[in-house]
Structures are given as C-alpha cells and as structure tokens.
Design a protein around this nucleic acid. Structure first.
Lengths: 342, 342
DNA sequence: CTATAGCATGTGTACGTTAACGCAAATTAA
DNA sequence: TTAATTTGCGTTAACGTACACATGCTATAG
C-alpha cells in the first residue's frame, strides 16, 4: 500500500516518441520546443504521435536539466499604503512562495510609492537590473505604468494584480469585480438598515477608477430598491479629524440616514460618529477586523487579499513550471464578513 | 530578463556535502535516508554539514530517480447523495489532480453508499486491492469506518474530509466548523427577518453529528438575540410532498414565523411554502444556486466544496512530494451567499 | 567540378538523487 | 584458525530532458 512501483508501462517518454517516429530524441526535442531545423514531414509525424500518445514531458526531468531558479518579480505599492491592504496581499504571496521554493521558484518583491510617478519609474528600473521570468504588477497609477510596460519583452508573462489595465500586449488580470463589489455592499447595507431610512456614502474626490466603479455598483443597487443615497464629498488628503467632522456634519444635516457606506478600507476611521447609523465598508484589514469584532463596524465586503496573492503566485508558477497558459482574467470571489464569520 | 542562469552558486548539492564531509555521496544518501550502515562519527559530521549549509534535496532530481507515480485514494459517498454536495467536492479534487498530474500524482476515486455499512466495507476492500500512498476519506457513518481504519498501516497519511473522527492514529481533518456555521446562519437569518418575528428550523430526526452541531450553533445565536425558534421535526426518508406538507402545516400553525432555516443542502425543497417567510439554508449546490438566483431562497451559508476538495488533494500532495507535515486541522472558511455574490 | 555554406539530423553528456551492487575490513561463529 | 556474517563505504547505472556539438547532406558559388 505504500510503495507504488506499479504501472509506468504506459508512461510515454520522448524516447518512445522518437522510436515511433523513427528519428532521434534530438529531433523530437527540437519539434517540442519549436527550435526549427526539422523537415516539415517529420514535424508532422512527430506532432501526430505526440498527440496520439498524449506525450507530456516529465516535469522532474525538465526541471532537473534546467536547474535554473526561476524568478518572479512583484511590484506593489508600499506596504503601509491603502491601510495595510498590500501587506496582506504580500503575505499571501509569501506563503505561496514558501511552498514553491523546492520547485526552484523564487519571488522578489519591490515596492513603490503609488502617489509618485518617479517612484514607479525607479522601481521599474531597479527590477530590470536583475533577471526575472515573470512579472506581477499592481499598476497604479496607470499613467505612470503604461509607458514603462511597453518596454517589456513581448513574451514575458505579465500579471496585473488588483487593478486591470487596457494593454495591447498579452497579459492576465487577477482581482475583484468592483461593480459587483459595490452592488453587494449595497445589498449588505440594505439588509442591516430599516427600510424607511436613507443611506449615506463617502465620495472620495481624489478617487481612482476602482472606487468610482464600486460607487456605481452601490448606487445602482440603491436605485433598484429605491433607497435614497446622500453622497458626502471627502478629500482623503485632509486630516482625520477634518474628515470625521465633515461626515459628522453631513449626517447631522440629514437625520434620516440609517447607514453609512465607506467604499474603501478606511472605513474604521469613521466609527462612532452617530450611534444609530450602521457602518459598512471594504477590506478585511486588521484594523477593520478589530472594529468588526467590537461591533463598531457592522459589515465588510472583502476580496481575500491573501488568497489573491497566493493565487497570483501559483498561477504564474504553473506557467513557469508546466507552461500552462495563464487564465486571462481571474475574478476573485467577494466575501461578506459579519461579526460571526471572521 | 528571460533566461535566468544566474546564481546557482549557492545551491548545495549532495555532492557538495559529500566533498565537505570527505565521504562519498552514497554515504551521505544513507545518512539522509537513515538507511544505516554509516559510522557514527561520519553521521554526525554529515548531519552537521547538512544543517550548516541548509542542504535540501533537489526535488526534481529525487522525483526523477524515483519516478514512481504516487497514488491518492479518495473514498467518498455516492455522488448523488447529499444533494450533489459530493459531486462538487470531487470536482475540486479533479481540478487539483489535473494540476498535479505532471508531478506524478494520481487520484483514484471510489464511492460508497453512506447509508449502507456493507457498502463501506466493500469499498474499503476494493481500494485495498491497489497500491496507494495516501487516503482521503469522508468517514460517514463513523460506526462503519472506525473498525476498518484500524487495519491501515500506521504511517499511511490519512485525511478526514468533511467530517472529523476521534482516532488514536495520526491523521488530519479538513472541513468546516459546524457550530460556527449554524451560528452564522442564524445571524444571516436574523438580518433578513423583521425583529418581531419568530424563526422556524427543520429538525431532521435522522440527522447526523454535523447537522446536530449546526442546529446547536443556530439555537445559541437565536437565544443570544432573543429570537423564538420553532423546531419542525422532519424525517428525511419521507416523500417530498409529505415533508413539504408537514412544514407547511407547522408554519400555518404559527403565523408569526418570518424565517425558515433548513440546516442542510435540501433547502431548495422547501421553497414557496409561504410568501412572506424568508428561506435560508446550506451549501451552494446547483439547485440552491438557481433558487438563490430567482429569489426563492434568500441566503445560504456554504463551505466551498470545490475549494475544500482541491485543498485536500494539494495538502496530501505536498506531503507526498515535499514530505511536508500535514496540518492537523484545516478549518475551511464559511461563506455567505446572497443573490449578488454568487 | 570542387569548395563552402547552411540545413537536417544524430550523439553525447550534464543535471542531482537514489539505491542496488560490490568490495574490503571488522566482527562473530564454528 | 577459518568460514561466515555484518558493517562501512564507494561506485555506478538509471531516471527523462535539454542542448551543445558533431556529422553528413544538399545546393550554390566560384
């Protein structure tokens, strides 16, 4: 029951294919790796046999002969930006990287300041100095990254993380669907607030694409169920107290508001403004987690940054190791967090 | 940027260790695999060097030399049992298995009738006929499985799937926490039902451990928030119409019930009994999914059977490939599903 | 017609680990 | 003391792939 030395009879090797095609393994190898220099007739013969016998190169053997450590480069915003969200993403990446270490996969992390285009450029230049076989990038702000990305070799696997970008070049995206996220957040708020009350939502004036689309989803649901929504304009560059005061004032002006929705991870900054206003927001960062636990936040929608990070590294590794084509878009599931399921 | 032939300078091989210890690789290998026949003095010298240089065998090389396909045996209830829940689990296993195929891992599935002890025995005997390197088992009913498990070799890795069992033997468990699941379901129901209404829950008289604990969690939450719960006894062996009628009658008797909670995947069988009673249940099986979509079910708690299946196979593979110790208990996250996040 | 590319193809070897094998020295049995 | 084990250790042949290199062939130029 322990040692399985059974059936390797049906395992097809490159040598089997060579024998069947009446050529050498070198020729088969050239066909497999499309290195040319093989007569068309033989190419076809070999490809047919490969298909017919379902030949798959032995991963161990190819790994052994290569023995070059593959490197994945990860470019993400500074850890403290976005309230620790990136920290969680990297945590997931690190755990996946740990698993993949014995498979000769290494992950190299580099950070940049997402408010500073120059920081993006220098991070990009920095990473170029070393060899890498795949790139994971959180491409914010897009204006800084787009020109840089054009300089990348066309065949280098590229994954956009968290934010998607329109780009000619072949790439893949892993992240959430912000519209659905906003829509779901609205539903969750709707559940928790008495039917005759209104909603308020914070509208960050410096917002990015992501937040905007989330808001759209939120508004659409509210519209569908006939909830009135008060949008409170806030500049996230303002001081915490100024922002709290602004929101507080707005809530006072409209006493019928029963739920406040903050479309990003900063939700914990708006706790305890008004006792009977439910507070909901985004992202299960430690601070929000604590607030959810103690009841000062009533619900969160989140996208499991750790899982997302781990999945990203795994996807890319699968490509690097098995040559498995990357899935164009991986839409990460949205989670609802209440006090009971954290 | 593509070919990384950089630094293998610091990769320590068995040959390096042998050279440093002034012995042959054969001796090092014997020490590494504890095959004996090495002088104590050299054992210590080698072990010290292995530790000092952090030598890790090259996975590719060991895989290559072994080349024996490792087999994982999976024993799970018939696919149609439990409303297709097992089907989803196997789906996840299959997808993980596909990924692992190139790593010489194979998964072999066998089904049994979980209502028939004799079926468990024969499935167990059947699986014994072939070689396997790890076993995944959904051990229901426990009375049938416990005696069989004693006959397994002590070092064979064993994972209990979905249901945990007390067992002397070393093993690992992957599944949900049913108490938390019930608790969460109650919270979800609580959110969707007006505060002055009561709850009803179906109490399957032939229930198993799982359902019982779920019910406990549900009851506890209701108790905490002061909701009255009407328990409706149902025998799941009865016909669908009989069961629907029984529930319907119970609901009619108590017109203040605003929410009905079904503690298992059969929830879709109780749709449209009373228009103003919210319906909540368990498990995102296709049928429930459809009912959630069209609004006849108002919420589900589920445990992502696919993810659970995939994770199980991955865990075991990690052990088989890397010798990575199995995590004792992997508690799968609970998900809340509403119409918007499916 | 020979020299010389350039292309099609085969050969050989490294990659690191594993474990069977074989030899010698040490120990035990007869 | 000799024969038979046991112990300690080194050697070596896989494992399947990848790729550098060698070989032989064809076509074209001189």
């Amino acid at each position: 029951m322990d040692k399985t030395d059974a059936k390797q009879a049906d395992v097809v090797t490159i040598r089997d294919i060579a024998r069947l095609a009446e050529v050498s393994i070198g020729t088969v190898d050239r066909v497999l790796h499309q290195r040319g220099r093989v007569a068309q007739e033989k190419v076809e013969r070999i490809e047919a046999l490969v298909h017919q016998y379902g030949y798959k190169p032995n991963l161990f053997a190819s790994g052994l002969s290569g023995t070059r450590m593959k490197t994945i480069a990860v470019l993400a915003p500074e850890l403290q930006q976005d309230h620790g969200y990136w920290e969680l993403c990297l945590e997931g990446m690190r755990s996946a990287a740990l698993e993949l270490e014995p498979l000769q996969i290494r992950v190299k992390y580099l950070r940049f300041d997402r408010n500073l285009a120059s920081s993006c450029v220098s991070a990009f230049e920095e990473i170029q100095k070393t060899q890498f076989d795949g790139l994971v990038l959180a491409p914010t702000p897009s204006s800084a990254w787009l020109p840089l990305l054009l300089t990348l070799p066309a065949q280098l696997p590229l994954i956009f993380f968290d934010t998607d970008l329109k780009l000619e070049r072949r790439h893949c995206f892993i992240g959430q669907n912000p519209y659905k996220a906003g829509f779901l957040a609205a539903r969750l708020t709707h559940l928790q607030v008495e039917k005759d009350k209104d909603f308020a939502t914070i509208n960050f004036v410096d917002d990015d694409q992501h937040l905007r689309v989330r808001q759209e989803g939120f508004m659409q649901y509210c519209h569908n169920v006939g909830r009135t929504v008060l949008a409170i304009d806030i500049d996230s560059a303002d001081s915490l107290s100024a922002r709290r005061q602004a929101v507080s004032k707005a809530l006072d002006r409209d006493p019928n508001v029963g739920g406040l929705f903050v479309p990003n991870a900063s939700v914990a900054e708006y706790v305890e403004l008004k006792p009977d206003v439910r507070l909901l927001g985004f992202d299960l960062i430690p601070r929000n987690l604590a607030a959810l636990r103690d009841g000062s936040i009533d619900g969160l929608v989140s996208q499991r940054p750790q899982l997302m990070g781990a999945e990203t590294i795994r996807q890319l590794s699968r490509f690097l190791l098995f040559g498995k084509q990357l899935t164009e878009t991986v839409e990460m599931p949205l989670d609802i967090y209440l006090k009971e399921n954290i």
